[in-house]
Amino acid sequence: MKKSLNIVYGVILLTGVVFLLSERSGSMIGEGIAYRTILPFRVMLNNFHELIRAKEENDALSRMVVALSLKLQELREIQVENQRLKKILGFVQEHHRFIQPVQVVNILTEADNTIIICKKKPYTIVKPDLPVVGYNGLIGKVKEVVDDYIRIQSIAHSMTRVSVIDSRSRVFGILKWEGALYLHGVPLTGDVKVGDTLVTSGMGAVYPKGINVGIIKKVVRNRNEYQTTILVEPFENLSFQEEVFVLVKP
């Protein structure tokens, strides 16, 4: 083999070894060269892969949009049918409510009862006994309105009673605050399970039907008592809210 060939191989090999050793010793000559020379290409390559991923995601989302659109159409049909049947049966129609956002200015906790103080906009009309919700579920009801300030009695208040039903089994009960939220009025044979969602039943005329209230955390059936002890965790964090929404009747 030619001598020149051996020299070239030696130089190439030495270059590789130098790069390798420099990197192992921490001086990173090779890595520095790599990042300086190839960064634009690498960015381009990453963008290309991102584009492919985005296209795949876009396709999946498009399919989902079509599926959801069909589902929505189906649900609209069901809604129309529901309204027609309710009309035939003479059900009282629940009118839609306006959502009035109000800013929370203070949250008071007196003897384990939570009161939320909010400030409303001057031109809005808010009356007592209107339900108040958060992003995830029920917060409470308007207790009183003084000037632009609203006093909200939350569900974490010993004076609050909320009529609720189990969304799965349609078992009915009354929610009370006793240091924690408890569901009362469910017999020992009542079909309630941990993880069931409770929604407002619409009875009592304060809270409209179907607002999420909480989730059942614990069910205790004591034979010495006549009803099941059910611990409920509210969907809303009642100790901290930035804004809440009053459901105003039109």
């Binding site: 070239v8 590789g16 790599a34 190839i38």
Partner: peptide, 25 residues
């Protein structure tokens, strides 16, 4: 061929710089 191999190794090292120099060798 040897020069192309060295250059190719360098190119591949740029794209996988964790052990820079391995492809060259």
């Amino acid at each position: 061929a040897l020069i192309v191999a060295g250059f190719t190794g360098f190119l591949y090292d740029i794209f996988a710089p964790d052990w820079f120099g391995l492809h060259i060798i």
